[in-house]
Amino acid sequence: MIEQLRFWAIIILLAFGLFFTFVSAVGVIRLPDIYARAHTASQTDTLGAGLALAAVALALGWDSMTIYAVLLLFFVFITNPTAAHAIARSAAESGIVPLTDETEVDVEPDPSTPDEGDSQ
């Protein structure tokens, strides 16, 4: 029973991990500029990796190597956002202008009224 439960938990974790990594890959390819790409690279990818690593940890069970899987999970969760921040910051330092709504449709921005709603 427990084995069965663990089996399905691993399947679900792997499926979601794969899904989020897929979203991340699609995002990195589809999104328009470096800042937007960094979003999926840092977040969806981290979650995908985290879920897959959790599945590995679960599959290994109470083994000494499970600790490594858990450590890896923590490590990925700390370093990935930091790396994304470093990359985005480096882009900002080298003067890459982010593509925003204002630059896209070329209207004067009005900071007092944040635009609401979807653009579709």
């Binding site: 899904f19 989020f20 979203v23 699609v26 995002g27 589809r30 999104l31 328009p32 500029d33 800042y35 937007a36 979003h39 999926t40 977040q43 969806t44 982010p98 593509l99 925003t100 709504d101 944040p114 635009d115 979807d118 653009s119 579709q120």
Partner: peptide, 15 residues
């Protein structure tokens, strides 16, 4: 965000 990215029209509004 997954829903937004996977939608073909990709309705993002970067600011």
């Amino acid at each position: 965000i997954s829903l937004v990215i996977l939608r073909p029209s990709m309705p993002i509004r970067p600011t």
